[in-house]
Design a protein around this nucleic acid. Structure first.
Lengths: 157, 157
DNA sequence: CTTCATGCAAAACATTTGCAGCTGG
DNA sequence: CCAGCTGCAAATGTTTTGCATGAAG
């Protein structure tokens, strides 16, 4: 992960450049997204922001996320049977490793994919823009407590 | 794609084996999922089934899909800003190439990924179970009519 | 016949939107 | 001061659920 503090300041700079107002709520959301490597969902961001600014509404969180998404500063990760998760640390596509039990998501590196997009484009005629690669499995923690409840034992992915 | 007819019969056999009733609606859903390589969504399946059996309800479509999912006979593909899509032709994970404009999805082969799951498991301690690889881009059709409306010009993925 | 499946309507969710009032610059 | 935010509440769209009726075996 790149330096989270400078990542935050970068986002702030971009907001300023485009003439968007630097409200406390926006700054809080930007900070959480740039500082955390845990790929939080909207509700989680909401709870954290509410800690500092109790009047904050969930709608504002969604609006802010939407803005940052449009600006290309955060990446949205959608899953079946789960809320969207957000990644503000890096903006280029990179693989994720997702625990199907506790939903923890970590970033991984897989070099093998370079050139594949180009090959596909040639073969299929598609103009390939980006890709997404996710690995699903059990994190070390959840392997140990297989039979006990994990923090969030929801439907499987 | 494997032989769609035998795929359909395979699903029917499994349903019978497990003691599930072979209702016309179920058979219709199973047939659509096994015969089509277009990765339809629930609404699309619904429309097609309704063609033959007009009394069919969307709830039944969802219930049937859910059943086939549980049995491992169809794979659910979730996307942000889009409905879930279903793949009944093959049950093993394989990459998809998705048009971000008209939402067409085609299956592709990418050999490069063999062994990567094992490597990741070693590096991270995760017990990797499966993965998902999607490529996004414009299909040949939508490249041509870039400025005109495609059939379904929804929000971008 | 007996159970399981269907179809309807209502519920459940995550996410989005409209709008009156507030506030950053 | 005033365009652009916020927060509320209501709307949206997809998927799920409860329950009475109907049909498969």
């Amino acid at each position: 992960m790149s330096d989270p503090i400078s990542r935050f300041e970068e986002i702030v700079k971009r907001l300023k450049e485009k003439g968007y107002r630097l409200t406390p709520q926006r700054l809080a959301v930007a900070k959480i997204l740039s500082m955390s490597d845990e790929h939080p969902g909207a509700e989680e961001i909401y709870r954290k922001v509410k800690g500092r600014f109790p009047s904050t509404s969930l709608a504002t969180i969604y609006k802010t996320i939407h803005l940052l998404k449009e600006m290309g500063e955060v990446m949205e990760l959608g899953f079946p049977n789960d809320t969207h998760r957000y990644d503000g640390a890096r903006s280029h596509p990179h693989p994720h490793l997702i625990c199907t039990k506790c939903r923890k998501i970590i970033d991984v590196d897989v070099p093998a994919l370079s050139g594949v997009s180009e090959q596909l484009a040639q073969k299929t005629g598609y103009q390939v823009v980006h890709h997404r690669l996710d690995f699903f499995g059990l994190c070390p923690n959840c392997q140990r407590r297989k039979r006990r409840a994990c923090l969030t034992d929801r439907k499987s992915l």
